[in-house]
Structures are given as structure tokens and as C-alpha cells.
Design a protein around this nucleic acid. Structure first.
Lengths: 233, 233
DNA sequence: TTGACATATGCGCATAACGGATATAAGTAA
DNA sequence: TTACTTATATCCGTTATGCGCATATGTCAA
């Protein structure tokens, strides 16, 4: 690189710069289905469409810190599983200006989902299909803003890809859970039914589940044993 | 409010904006090892250190387009496997200014590696360790600039994670290759030796390799059959 | 108290995947 | 021809997996 090119790169005002945002894909189980938490846009552009919670990255704020801040502000929590998902930078993805967004995937437990919904800032939308589309609990289809269907699809696919070999499913469950609940999570994420004995054995043989000795309450049938994740190793 | 009216009132300069770059992790096989193509910095900061090829994202250029442009400009090719890797946005990762980089992973065949090295713009550096460190062909350790060791580590890990269930290994090989060469790639990427009969059977049973009937030339022993990837389905 | 019912839990078997050793085939080089 | 190197094929024991079925354990109603 020549000195001129170097100096041109060095001057922070020499290039027009895109805006940078972080968008959050908040996923969790809701009514037995995989669901995302979305916000309804009431301002143009795309008023009436549903969008991921997001915001600008501060000039003195790392990407991870921006994602954590948004998790607190938009969903009111700070202990969810959070991982960077993918960056989206199509030139025309936002009609207002050039904006590049770094999408983060956050996984919420059912109680966190419920608390966020109660706060009124977000609404749960069940995800299905390929690419995913969003549906409200009463069955109505929710139109998605910008390229957010694409982002949601990638989030769902990330979850699908990792659920078999990582502990990611447990981020969607309370600390103590039944094997049936764990299987429900796997089936909702993968979108296919799994056979029960095989699933049960696979999970137990992995050696990361610890039987608590206690059983679920308020079941109208034989109560299942509660397990917890061995996160010690 | 209409979209047009909103756009008219929108002030895009309300926030200080970080610079956005794309960095390229160019990986390939070199001397039987997994190697990356790096550029030596001859200007401060970190003059003398080795860095990934990279550049600013144009205001009217998508992230993928910027990565493709850099692939042409820095490595002189346009048909390599290219996928987005991860975005790095620590506040102090570049001492000159706030810069967020979207790293892309490019996989090169041996002939593409050789051509890029001959062009003189880049140098091959063998990768090993965790986190990865870079070594020149003569064994000298190459210091890495900025957070590029972290980026290279993530690239190597992505390759490791995908090599078992995707066609990613074939992007590092010529169109026709022996099973031995394919195993060499797997071993270099994973960093462990693999047993030959098992590897052979796994690859053939997958049903994606097509025997060409021809055999490798210039071998000082029994020549192995050449296979090609069935990319039809 | 008893029996119907739903779900959890455990068992067995056939099949496929896999690691690993060994035998055989097919080239080169003396 | 013979030694040597590597490719290719076969075999075996272990382990993971799909799947059906038997049994256990709770609720609930008669």
C-alpha cells in the first residue's frame, strides 16, 4: 500500500461510512412451538410490519456489549444465552440509508419469554417454514420488515445445526426439566417428530444429564423425573 | 406518515459511525499443511507484523461484493469458495480508529495458492496451535497484527467444524484427486491422523465421489485412482 | 376399593456406522 | 526377478441407532 493510500485510509472522514446496528433474534418456546419475540413497527418505513429488536452500535461500544445492552433494554433480562449469528449488509436492505446489521441470537427460557411478553415491548410469533414465516398465537400471519425473514431463517437454521451436538437446547429450558420437555424442544426446533426410546437413551448416554430424584408436579398421569444439566465439565 | 415523508426528515448523521471493513482469511494447503495467505505490514501501526488482506466496504457495496472485490484484488482470483465467517468489533482492535470488520473465509486450491504467492502480494503461513500461530515455510514464527490471530483461529475452527458433514474439503483440492490427497486435507485441517480404511469407506459410502478410471501420474509407487466430486446433486 | 387409562421407564433385537488389523494387488526401482 | 511402497479389499469386534414391546407408576372415575 502506498503512503497516499495509507493516509487516505487513515483519515476517518475520507470515506462515507455505513451505519452499524445490532439486531436481536430472541428465540424461545411458546405454546409448545419455537417462537421469536418481535416488535410492531408503528413508524414508516414498513409501518405495521414486524421487526427484530435492534439499535445502533455506540462508537465506544463493542458488538457484544451492544447486543447485551439491547437484551436488557428490549427484553428486560441479562442472563440469556447470547451468540453472534451473522452480518447482513445488502445495500438496499433499509430504504432510509445504508445500514449494516450484526444479528445476534438470544435463547430464552419459557419464564423469560413470558416476562418479556408481559412487559409489552415485544410479542411472541411462532416460526415455521423455509424460509420462516411468523404467525401470532391466534394464527394470523405477521408480515416481517426489511430482511428480517432472512435473519430469522438463519437463526432457526443455526439452532437446528447446533442442537444435536451442543448444549444449546438447555438454554430454552428451566434448570430442571423432564426428558419429555427436552424432546419437545428438539422436535420444535427440528420440525420433525423423534422416537422416544432412542431420544431418551441418546440423552442419558451422553452423560451430561443428572437425575434429581424429584418428579414433576401437577401432571394428570404418571409424573416424569426431573433432570438437570451437568454443567460442571 | 408516508415512507417518503419519513425519509425526508430522517437525519442519517445523528450518530457517530464506526468504519466497516472486510478481512479475508485465505486458506489452502501448502507443503502438506494448512496455510493462510498473509500480507506483511510495512507501515505503522504494527509495521513488520503479518495481517489478513482487507479493505473498506464501499457505501454502495454489499458485504459479499466487498469480499469478492478483495478476493480479486488481493489474491487475483474470482472462483474460490467464499463464505462469511464472523464479525469482530472490539473497541480497541485497531489503534487508529473504531473499525468493525466482517471476516470472510476463502478456500483456495493448491494451484490458486501458488498463483497468489507468485503474484508477490501475499505469503503463505502454516497454521497450528490453539489459538493458531503462523509460521513461514522456513519455520520462522510470524507475529500477527491486531486481532488477526483470533480471526484465523475462528476460521480454522469453522473449517474443522464443517469438514465432516459438508463438501468444504473439496474446495481445497483440484477437480480430480486421490483418496490419499483427500485424507491429507482432512488430517491437516483436523490436526489428527485418521485411519485409512475407515476414512476410505466413509468417503465412498457417502456416494458423492465418482471414480474417473484414470490414475495419478508420476508416483514412485502404485498409482492411486483419481476421483472427482459428484456435484450434480 | 378397583379397574381403566395415560404416560414414563426399561428391555431386546436387528441394522448400520466405525475403529482397527490384516491380507492382497499393483505399481516402481534395484 | 526381487524388494519395496502404497493402494485396495476383507474381516471382526464394538458401539450407536431405529423401533417395537413389556412393565411401572401415577391419575381419575365408577
Amino acid at each position: 500500500m502506498t503512503d497516499e493510500a495509507f493516509l487516505r485510509d487513515y483519515d476517518p472522514s475520507a470515506f462515507a461510512r455505513p451505519s452499524v446496528t445490532v439486531d436481536l433474534v430472541l428465540l424461545g418456546m411458546h405454546d409448545g412451538q419455537l417462537a421469536a419475540l418481535l416488535m410492531r413497527r408503528d413508524q414508516p418505513p414498513q409501518a405495521g410490519c414486524w421487526a427484530l429488536p435492534g439499535g445502533f452500535v455506540g462508537i465506544d461500544e463493542s458488538l457484544d456489549a451492544a447486543a447485551l445492552r439491547l437484551l436488557r433494554d428490549k427484553a428486560g433480562m441479562d442472563d440469556a444465552h447470547l451468540e453472534q449469528l451473522y452480518s447482513f449488509g445488502a445495500v438496499d436492505r433499509d430504504p432510509r440509508m445504508r445500514v449494516i446489521t450484526i444479528a445476534y441470537l438470544a435463547l430464552l427460557r419459557a419464564d423469560q419469554m413470558a416476562a418479556a411478553i408481559r412487559s409489552g415491548r415485544v410479542t411472541a410469533a411462532a416460526l415455521a417454514g423455509d424460509p420462516v414465516s411468523a404467525r401470532s398465537p391466534d394464527g394470523a400471519s405477521l408480515p416481517l420488515a426489511f430482511d428480517h425473514a432472512q435473519i430469522l431463517t438463519r437463526a432457526r437454521d443455526r439452532l437446528r445445526g447446533k442442537i444435536d451436538y451442543s448444549d444449546i437446547a438447555f438454554a430454552l429450558l428451566p434448570a430442571r426439566f423432564t426428558l419429555r420437555a427436552l424432546q419437545d424442544v428438539h422436535e420444535a426446533v427440528l420440525g420433525v417428530p423423534l422416537n422416544k426410546p432412542g431420544f431418551r437413551r441418546r440423552m442419558l448416554d451422553r452423560g451430561r444429564l443428572i437425575a434429581t430424584g424429584t418428579r414433576e408436579a401437577d401432571a394428570s398421569h404418571r409424573p416424569a423425573e426431573l433432570f438437570r444439566l451437568n454443567d460442571g465439565d
